[in-house]
Amino acid sequence: MNLTNPDNQTAIAAVNKFATALAARYNPIVGCTRSWDAADPTDFQVIIDNMMNLQVLFASYALTKNETLRDIAISHAKKTMINHLRPDGSSFHVVDYNSTTGAVIDQRTSQGFADNSTWSRGQAWGIYGFANMYKNTQIFDFLETARRMAQYFLDNMPSDGIVPWDFNAPLNPPRPADTSAAMIAANGLILLAQQELTLHPPNIVGSTTYLASAIDIIKKTTTLAWKPSWQSLLSNGTVNNPARNNLTGIVYGDYYFIRAANELVSMGLTPC
């Protein structure tokens, strides 16, 4: 919604329409919104990317006070927390549920290296998504989940500070980078740093660490990949490596690059 004109009726109608469409994909037996449609209607596919979609439910809830929208967002996040995360804080890309029983059929990847590997953009979606869930609900489990996912991401960064397409992909041949994953993660770390300061008492050390890590990722990614000559701001994006769609500019990589920079400006941490 246009925050400079919060009474814009076109924007309000669009937000509510999108939220209604997303809520229609919710299955109360599974406890999630369906991500991808499958030929078999009992195959209920949920991708970790959809943690980012939940914000539209909160935006519509703020406009309509429809508690169902908020409840759906919380349910989806809780199920994702249980079934997409591994004990070490890494994540599966896709979880397949049985739509009639709610049972987990499979935990796998679609765009990562292997079912047991960690696709970096999915991990980044999770950091941001769970930090945002905490911002909207103050449910502490969501903050803890964002922390666990952030810790895995930072612990598995290579020494050059460039985010790989998949943290567990082989090094030979060289695995491609994904600048979109880097920029999404940077935004997630900034948001997580901000949420740490809302605690009583504030977690100063945690906030400082996440913020410093975000800035470092942005700096190293910019050094590698600043390529406006590509008709994008950043090169070295990986859309889908199994489909050999890598070493490219990506619109959402550029979007989150700009968004991270604007957030740092608004925080007074860098000049415009």
Rank of each mutant, 00 (worst) to 15 (best):
M1V: 10
N2C: 15
T4C: 13
P6H: 06
Q9A: 07
T10N: 13
A11L: 12
A13G: 11
A23H: 07
Y26F: 15
P28M: 09
P28Q: 09
P28K: 09
V30P: 07
S35T: 15
A38T: 15
A38E: 13
A38L: 11
A39C: 10
D43S: 13
I47K: 12
M51V: 11
L54I: 05
F58A: 07
F58T: 00
A59G: 06
S60R: 01
K65Q: 14
E67K: 15
T68G: 07
M81Q: 13
I82N: 13
N83A: 11
N83E: 11
H84Q: 06
R86K: 15
D88R: 08
H93W: 08
T100L: 10
G102W: 02
A103E: 14
D106I: 11
Q107K: 15
S110H: 14
S117A: 15
S117R: 06
W119E: 01
S120K: 00
Q123I: 05
Y128R: 03
Y128D: 03
G129W: 01
F130K: 00
K135G: 10
N136T: 06
R148K: 15
Y152C: 04
D155E: 12
D155K: 08
S159T: 15
D160T: 08
G161P: 03
V163N: 02
F167G: 05
F167K: 04
L171K: 14
N172M: 11
R175Q: 14
A181C: 07
A185R: 04
Q194A: 08
L197Q: 14
L199G: 03
S207A: 13
T208M: 14
T208K: 14
L211N: 05
L211F: 07
S213H: 06
I217N: 02
L224A: 05
A225K: 02
L233R: 01
L233Y: 02
L233P: 01
G237Y: 00
V239G: 13
R244E: 14
N246H: 12
T248Y: 11
G249K: 02
Y252E: 07
D254I: 09
A261D: 09
